[in-house]
């Protein structure tokens, strides 16, 4: 398979959030600002790459019937690592993301990559796939966070460009759904 295509497919064409509609819970729950969205995206990307590596290395030893529980345990171990490292070195971000860090385990996008790609492909292409899809996920979360931050508090990455209170609704729950709805419409348009 063409590796460059393999890498870039997650950006727009098979973007996990905009096109496949996977991993929506963290995508909506953590993107109150561009920085939070990026933090969540990078944490998930680490888990995707590492679990893709391990799954593709041991794919021949896992009995077919118990493969899903095995994948979940592998993913859960890396999520625990991310959880503890973040709590130690980035306590503020960890506090913001809260419940959604342990919930990376049940992010269907991570399990989906392990099941649909890493369990069938070689180590190298699994790493490339994990990085590409992880970057696509990070991109989607950063974009969504940026859109919500721009309208919600007239700021981007904490830098305020209009000294006024923004449209609060974009920071609150309803704005997340609506902003994602319009971003998906835009991605569908770009995809054509």
């Amino acid at each position: 398979m063409d590796q460059a295509k393999n890498f870039t497919k997650g950006f727009i064409r098979e973007n996990p959030v905009f096109i496949l509609m996977l991993g929506l819970c963290p995508a909506l729950g953590t993107t109150t600002s561009a920085f939070n969205g990026m933090g969540m995206g990078l944490a998930t990307m680490f888990v995707v790459i590492m679990s893709n590596i391990v799954v593709s290395l041991i794919k021949n030893f896992i009995p077919n019937k118990v493969r899903i529980p095995c994948y979940i345990v592998i993913i859960a171990s890396f999520v625990t690592i991310v959880d503890l490292v973040m709590a130690g070195y980035m306590p503020a971000l960890h506090e913001q993301l809260g419940l959604f860090i342990p919930l990376i385990v049940v992010n269907c996008f991570v399990l989906g990559r392990a099941e649909a790609f890493a369990s069938k492909n070689t180590l190298i292409s699994s790493i490339i796939d994990g990085s590409g899809m992880g970057l696509g996920f990070t991109l989607a979360l950063t974009l969504l966070g940026a859109a919500r931050e721009i309208f919600g508090s007239y700021a981007l990455f904490g830098f305020q460009f209009i000294p006024a209170d923004g449209m609060l609704v974009f920071i609150l729950a309803p704005g997340a759904f609506i902003a994602l709805g319009y971003l998906i419409a835009l991605a569908n348009k770009l995809n054509k």
Partner: peptide, 11 residues
């Protein structure tokens, strides 16, 4: 498709 459902959920 999905966009209008998301907007409905937002409302």
């Amino acid at each position: 498709g999905n966009p209008i459902i998301l907007v409905a959920a937002g409302l």
